[in-house]
């Protein structure tokens, strides 16, 4: 146990998966918040204009991987102010305290505690150039990556409590799913046939069971080949069936935290054809 805990926080591995998460998280943040933070929307509120400016500067640094530690801290601080300070926009005062945006905020904070700028970043490009000028080999993309476990724990926390909540809401009897079907699809014309009720109950049971299994199973490497695709399919279904917006792609990105960083590194190498015989 002691050795396992020690390895958990001391292991050094490739930083590419952290870099990939940084890049994707930044792009998703633009997709989710950029429209609401366009300065012209709040031109009569100087504080919101400042908020917009800081958001754009910080997230640009985050996506590019430029002054990455500073950009990550600044992005985290901006999201904290948006969520815990403002809470939302004039048209939707609670938009930024939603579960989905809270997930965005927390994951960015946890990622800012990692060396996510050491790969796939301008910082990396500059480091390689410095090494070239000094006649040295490029610096290794290796660093302590224990911070990724925070993102894994955040995802597991979400699955655990979401399942507990669904159990408290009797998801197993299908009623909660039928309420969603009425809200988003059929209004008051809910079909009153046995197979429909059975399908809704089955969907409720499968969702809860899968969330309870994903909560711990994603940490088990042997189960990942089965559970990662199942989890991805679950989130794709959420995306297609109910309005979850950027939540699905965010969760998919978070799954990188469960895969060993060296596996991701090798996969990227393989995609680039590195380490393989080159054609003449």
């Amino acid at each position: 146990m002691k050795a396992w805990l020690e390895r958990l926080v001391t292991e050094e591995a490739s930083t590419r998966s952290l870099g990939l998460m940084r890049l994707l998280f930044g792009l998703i943040l633009w997709s989710r918040f950029a429209r609401e933070l366009m300065p012209y929307r709040h031109f009569d509120e100087p504080d919101r204009v400042v908020l917009s400016a800081v958001f754009y500067v910080a997230t640009t640094g985050m996506v590019l991987g430029l002054f990455t530690p500073v950009s990550m801290v600044l992005t985290s601080a901006t999201l904290i102010v948006m969520s815990w300070g403002y809470g939302g926009t004039a048209s939707d005062p609670t938009a930024w305290v939603h579960h989905h945006t809270t997930m965005h905020l927390l994951c960015v904070i946890w990622l800012s505690l990692t060396p996510c700028g050491k790969s796939l970043s301008v910082d990396r490009w500059l480091a390689v150039r410095r090494a070239e000028q000094a006649g040295q080999p490029p610096p290794a993309e290796v660093a302590p990556t224990w911070g990724r476990h925070l993102i894994g724990a955040q995802v597991a926390t979400l699955y655990l409590w979401s399942a507990v909540d669904k159990l408290q809401c009797n998801y197993w009897n299908g009623a909660a799913i039928e309420h969603l079907v009425m809200r988003y699809y059929v209004g008051a014309a809910l079909p009153d046939v046995w197979w429909f009720h059975a399908a809704c109950a089955a969907a409720g049971v499968i969702t809860v069971v899968l969330e309870l299994v994903l909560f711990w199973g994603l940490f088990v490497p042997r189960l990942q080949p089965v559970l990662v695709p199942l989890g991805l399919v679950l989130h794709i279904l959420f995306y297609v069936l109910i309005p979850v917006n950027t939540f699905t792609v965010w969760m998919m990105t978070c799954y990188l935290a469960f895969v060993h960083p060296d596996v991701v590194h090798r996969a990227i190498d393989r995609m680039l054809g590195r380490g393989l015989p080159q054609a003449a």
Partner: peptide
């Protein structure tokens, strides 16, 4: 979920789609 207290923005409970659509009625 355990203590039935409110969840402040700084400590959000993971109640996803909690009770969503329960205000809807089926008509016969």
């Amino acid at each position: 979920l355990v203590l039935n207290w409110a969840d402040p923005p700084w400590a959000k409970a993971w109640e996803m789609y909690h009770g969503k659509g329960r205000e809807q009625c089926r008509l016969d």
